[in-house]
Design a protein around this nucleic acid. Structure first.
Lengths: 210, 210
DNA sequence: TTTAAAATAGCATATTCATGCTATTGACAA
DNA sequence: TTGTCAATAGCATGAATATGCTATTTTAAA
């Protein structure tokens, strides 16, 4: 029985190449390839693949959403992220959603092959720079703060936000300008993936950041 | 051994009257009287009274703060609130902080005397209208919501605030106008004693209102 | 049946917030 | 020693928020 693989990748050339190459590997069978994750749930329901190769940046439903959708219903399906992105935000989001591997596109085809083999044996293939980021996060702290890694100043500002301070009050309390406060809050929002103060406060309290 | 009483009351005339009257009662000894709660912690540490008669509206550190301060370190000290306020906000705040009695100033001196005797025997003297409010609250719900008693609609709106919805989004979600949303939020702020959304969210989460 | 409270809605206005940019400095790492 | 990141700061602008009023309708309690 061969290993069933599904590919989600919007670049048609790359998608075709991957399909042909993986199909050429004995024991592997690419049973589906798609340019986005619009129907990810239905596709996985029907094809029931062993491994999913998942790009992130795709039109309409992207790879992170796809990962989320698939893992919700099929946690046993191995999903390897295959992307050019190596920012911590996307990386951590994928890992939180249960991605089984994270391989950068700037690596060789062999690396991807090894990665697939790796997950099938219970491993977690990570490109070197990715692995490093993951380890750095875990060494820093083991809970809470790691996820968002706010700077000291940002954490301080966030505490004031939770206390209901206005930007002006925060500026006074921190002895910095109003614009700097704005800057910090802008960054906090980005790191917490929120876009208003109330949401930030809710996240801060729920995740015990403050 | 006489019962040691401390009085916190900013109206000097009333304070002196109370002191003289209580000192005239056999077995009672007013060992201190103050016009605010600025040094409440130190005072109670030193005098170690059995009963504290506590006004609420006082300059600088008020009676609710004083109650809080004293009960933190001396939970066994009986504290009887003695005030003109009968709004639920202050009342419930005092009861939550562990006040042992709540006697309105529009009652006779004898009532206060009975109240002191009452707490010394493990009772909880409450003026009639106060007792009524307390019972009403407990019949309504037994925990949480009672504290602020938000209406159903207000609770609903608060949930959306916590989720970071804008007023417009809340209006859509509830099928009501933007101005009505404003109205509800205005009321929520008043009930929670806050004046911005972030503070409301913090309170909602901490007090598990939502 | 009069009162009270909740839900609705409106209007006006000043403040605050969110977010788009850019830019400088110091510190620490590659 | 070049680069990255945190912290600082500025400017501009539209959207959102906070808060001052009033007012109607419905429902529940006194």
């Amino acid at each position: 029985m061969s290993t069933r693989i599904v590919i989600f990748e919007d670049n048609q050339t790359l998608r075709q190449s991957l399909k042909i190459l993986l199909d050429g590997v004995p024991g592997y069978n690419v049973c589906g390839d798609y340019e986005n994750c619009n129907d990810a749930a239905a596709i996985v329901d029907e094809l029931n693949p062993d491994v999913v190769i998942m790009d992130i940046d795709m039109p309409e439903t992207d790879g992170i959403e796809g990962l989320h959708i698939i893992k919700e219903k099929h946690p046993q399906t191995y999903i390897i992220m295959h992307t050019v992105f190596e920012d911590e935000d996307r990386l951590f989001e994928c890992l939180c959603y249960g991605a089984n591997g994270y391989i950068l596109k700037n690596t060789s085809f062999v690396t991807l092959l090894e990665g697939i083999d790796n997950v099938l044996h219970g491993g977690a293939p990570l490109s070197p720079s990715i692995a490093k980021k993951v380890l750095q996060s875990f060494k820093a702290t083991n809970s809470g703060k790691v996820l968002y890694n706010l700077s000291d100043r940002e954490t301080e500002v966030l505490k004031y936000l939770v206390k209901g301070y206005s930007y002006k009050m925060i500026a006074s309390a921190c002895f910095i300008s109003l614009d700097t406060v704005r800057g910090h809050i802008r960054n906090i929002y980005a790191k917490l993936h929120v876009n208003c103060g109330r949401e930030a406060v809710a996240k801060a309290l729920r995740d015990k950041i403050v």
